[in-house]
Design a protein around this nucleic acid. Structure first.
Lengths: 210, 210
DNA sequence: AGCATGATCTTTACACTGTAAAGATCACAT
DNA sequence: ATGTGATCTTTACAGTGTAAAGATCATGCT
């Protein structure tokens, strides 16, 4: 019944909703969040400027779906990073993975933390953010010696928010070129991630936890 | 010669440049960065929509001056916070001061880290950011036992960027309501600053430094 | 089969935005 | 006093998001 997967012509697109999400994500990757435009997204999907609003209610609706995809990808990476090693090593790896995600997808990343552009009550978004949170939480639970599924104790909570804040802030500062004066790595983002950020984690966390 | 400080009537405003910066800052405080508009700023200054561009070249020019003021205020607070106590205590106090600044002036804070909206080469901005950086650097130098004015060693650098990242990330996450599920403090930003953030610093940093 | 119904997409329109270009006004030095 | 340059206004234009109304089509009901 849905056999117009190849050439989407005619008045009705067929898979417009998915196509719009994909187009928006690509536009975000190309021009960043500030270069994003609902009309340009529609243009890329080969559709009229007002078409997206029908499916998503407006710009915020579309961007919320894109952000949900971003959280899914982030959660996936955090789970992979938290698979092997001692609990402190896993937490460190998740921190690196968090920053790497931000540097790989700056547009997505910025969007995901712009609550003024998202509809926080959207179930798809809530679920995806929950997955990312859980990935970190289970690692911290292991560090604290608490059973899986338990509620974090106070120090565990501070630990979780701490690593999150540190990774989040480092990612933001790097993307905003605020660490450019650090000449150890000549502004190269990859180097900053591979050497500087782990050094920070070591200085802060691992030495204390291990 | 400049005696029209009270009633600014007539074709020429007199102190339009300053008035625009003030109006922009107020607008930022009222509606946040996303509610900011060059035309509304002009309206509040009682002037035509195109007038600001003459003084600042465009939106970015005006916002850069506002951001420079923000960095000045931030630097002032960091210096005050770093005045008394042991070096680790001073660094902790500066971290708290950093977050407090962000929560007190969300509009300014967001603007200050939007490199796509600022002119990074503006001297007023460069100088103000340098002051804020120096305030943190001198505290870390004291912790590392290095003389004032020296160049930070590798671990000191990691320490500086680490505390900055942690405070920066915590501020961002708080402003974006990402820590709302932490029910220890019922979403109250003041409580989060006064209890949660210091707990994080203690768990991460101070225990290790002291 | 024929047909109505509703989902999907387009067209049109409007109130905004930033800013470029050209004109008006005024302070001030000569 | 006079013109010169800085300051501000007017006008205009290309964009933006989205509301409202119209066109097109798939689908299920009789």
């Amino acid at each position: 019944m849905n056999e117009k997967n190849t050439t989407e012509r005619g008045y009705h697109h067929g898979h417009l909703r998915d196509a719009l999400i994909r187009a928006a994500d690509e536009l975000l990757a190309e021009r960043g969040l500030e270069g994003f435009t609902l009309r340009e997204t529609a243009r890329r999907a080969g559709v009229s400027p007002a078409a997206p609003s029908h499916h998503f209610g407006g710009t915020a609706g579309l961007l919320t779906e894109v952000a949900a995809l971003g959280y899914q990808e982030l959660a996936r990476r955090l789970m992979v990073a938290g698979e092997s090693g001692t609990p402190p090593d896993r937490l460190k790896a998740q921190g690196v993975g968090y920053v790497r995600f931000a540097l790989d997808f700056p547009g997505r990343f910025h969007l995901m933390f712009r609550h003024d552009m998202l509809q926080k009550d959207q179930p798809s978004l809530e679920q995806a953010t929950g997955q990312a949170w859980d990935a970190l939480e289970s690692t911290v639970l292991a560090i604290r010696g608490q059973p899986e599924g338990a509620e974090l104790d106070a120090e565990g909570e501070a630990m979780l928010i701490g690593i999150w804040s540190t990774a989040h802030g480092f990612a933001h500062l790097t993307l905003d070129k605020k660490l450019a004066r650090i000449d150890d790595c000549g502004g190269n983002e990859a180097d900053m991630l591979e050497s500087l950020f782990p050094a920070i984690i070591d200085t802060l966390w691992v030495k204390k936890l291990g």
